[in-house]
Amino acid sequence: MLKNRSIISIADLSDEDINEIFTEADKMLENLNSGQKMNDMESRILATLFYEPSTRTRLSFESAMQRLGGSVISMADSKTSSTSKGETLADTVRIVESYSDIIVIRHPLEGAALLASKFSSKPVINAGDGSGEHPTQTLIDLYTIRKESGSIDGKTITIIGDLKYGRTVHSLLSALARYRVNVNLVSPESLALPKHVYNEIKGRLKVNVSTDLEPFLAQTDILYVTRIQKERFTDKNEYARLIGSYKITGREADMLPSGAIIMHPLPRVDEISPEVDNREPAKYFRQAYYGVPVRMALISMIAGE
């Protein structure tokens, strides 16, 4: 039962919760595809508090709420609103909870969503807290694997890119630890997985760590590519060198076994070359599309009747 619960971390969800969300998302997907009009959230308000720029995540939450017949209120760019006047997040949340039925928050600091949930009597969904978690992205990732690969159990997932700061990766890994999967982690040493995340998953997952992607490709069912953020590098040459060696092109796509899929939480910059987009394994736009039905499921289960 998700009713009235905050979703701060993927760890807040039981295996059963996750299965229920997926079953509900299947229904939502069907409704979306058939053009069925929905009113689950009629007269309900979802508030989005985005303290960090985001296009996709916010739009997909807003789209999900409106597809369900609800409405959305949003904080203006945080640079022009209350934060710049020095208001604490705690105060902002105490006010916004009285204007809405469910709050979605993205914040640059780790733990912000948990803090928000402690000051709100309305459920809070974490849409990313610093380098912390991004649980709805994780649900979408799992849902995509399940939809596009048939199942999660038994699969080999190779994750490449920024494993250090990439919050989607941290959430995804702790979620994958619930399944029987093999995981290959590929990153430059400077962007390796933080120890606390590694400690959490080791022993629960079969994990290989490497700086080299190619040897894993033939054994990969799901290639999960993440963005390497330019902002993280003081040395722009180092960035250029890295991005060169981690790019997925048609060549890499061809080395995957048949039936394999390529995912990316988007936005991508240079990590996947456009020539891959029309190939069979490219599922990252599907993945983005699934963001709406999965978030619809979550919103209606949390804030619905």
């Binding site: 600091l109 733990g111 610093g130």
Partner: peptide
């Protein structure tokens, strides 16, 4: 980068992960 260091009206909070050597974990970040 932890929210507990950002002037919010909360006390820090840690849980004990291991006692030897002592390891504690911030419940926020």
């Amino acid at each position: 980068n932890c929210i507990t260091n950002a002037g919010e009206p909360v006390r820090s909070e840690f849980s004990t992960v291991e006692t030897n050597p002592l390891t504690i974990k911030c419940i926020y970040c």
